[in-house]
Design a protein around this nucleic acid. Sequence first.
DNA 1: CGTTCCATTGAGGGTTTTCAATGATAGTGG
DNA 2: CCACTATCATTGAAAACCCTCAATGGAACG
Lengths: 229, 229
Amino acid sequence: MGNINPRSLACTTCDTKVTSLVNNLSPEETEKFSSAKTCNYYKKQQGVFLEGAFPRGVFCIHDGKVKVFRRGEMGKEQIIHIATRGEILGYRALFGDEPYNVSAETLEESHICYVPREDFLDMLDHNMTLRHAIMKELSKELSLRTTMITNMAQKSVRERLAFSLVFLQNIYENEPIKLSREDMANFVGTATETLIRLITEFKEDGYIESQGRKIQVINKEGLIRLAGK
Amino acid sequence: MGNINPRSLACTTCDTKVTSLVNNLSPEETEKFSSAKTCNYYKKQQGVFLEGAFPRGVFCIHDGKVKVFRRGEMGKEQIIHIATRGEILGYRALFGDEPYNVSAETLEESHICYVPREDFLDMLDHNMTLRHAIMKELSKELSLRTTMITNMAQKSVRERLAFSLVFLQNIYENEPIKLSREDMANFVGTATETLIRLITEFKEDGYIESQGRKIQVINKEGLIRLAGK
DNA sequence: CGTTCCATTGAGGGTTTTCAATGATAGTGG
DNA sequence: CCACTATCATTGAAAACCCTCAATGGAACG
């Protein structure tokens, strides 16, 4: 269980292609990319790569969710991003010839493909379109992190939570957000207890609904207003 | 006054070259780069580019210091970076075809060169070494921002200030750090009054010396210890 | 069915912010 | 060059916010 036929993961047919950087490749290049990669099943809470290790390739999420985080003082996790279907992970460390500065771990059962460093860099050198797409992607990430810094520095926990809920609901599309309270707190940047109290408030105020650890946004506009600029 | 001979800003002779990305160009390319650019004098507190505007080129700091910031709620600035001699600014927005997501403004009198978008992108497309250097640079920035997010989310103001002082002293090399209290607070991510109280403490504890708005680190190791991991 | 981990609630304390007032400084125009 | 004035730095006091510790309740999983 959990295994799917590797054939169905061929990039040429992969339906995540549309959202993925891979859609910048020509058919032949896609074929090449496809044959260079291997696909793996990851169970829940399995490590993908670890802060401090040296990268030997990039990862491409076929399905599932992956949290990207850094450990601060006392090992407390700060979740930087939650990656989903179609996203490529771990390409930053590749350019820098440096160890990963973050760790990645699955939040649920996932299928993640792996492309060796050389193949990926090679493609990057020879395909201008892909290159531009990657640079655009890097820029977007940089922008997102700038927003996160500003939010962490200037917004209250309540505002950050409102912001995060909207953000997470986008990632989870129409499904309920499914995260442990601790993970959510580590994304918002607060203590677990504080997060729980605010979740309760938001529920009482009709912004969200929750059952167990599942949370569904029901008043997105309201949350956006709460989050401020 | 304030003007220097444009000739002395030729990239071929520019001594910031060593620290700059430009040192990845061949002599001919440097020449091309040099002739494509124009150099300008900026007085103190002059805007270089503005959040929301569309980029038409990149900036290269010949000398001086530039704060890069975003405005949060109520227009409060969050300073993301302080750029100095040899650094290239504003290249991220170029890749994304998006407006600047941050603003840049000089902190002191500066000379800043400008290279039109097309010339820069062209060079990037044709010079692999420069491209790799830029990507490495982007990666480094991304890593730095990840650190900032984690610091903002998990460290106390005292720890962040210790961290920031070490960071800023590096940027200012051996000269004293010269920033308004407000700017420093906006870099650390705290209220001006809180910053002032902590600066006073640090001075009493012998970590730093200050006269007017000039601050000099005198116990770097101690500050690093204070800042935590 | 028990046991372990996670979620929740309460109380208390510490850090940080905000508001307000005063002192110092630096830039500006005469 | 000096005085003036606007801006910046500093200090105090009170309140808001958030965290930590501790205890209990609940859910999931073997």
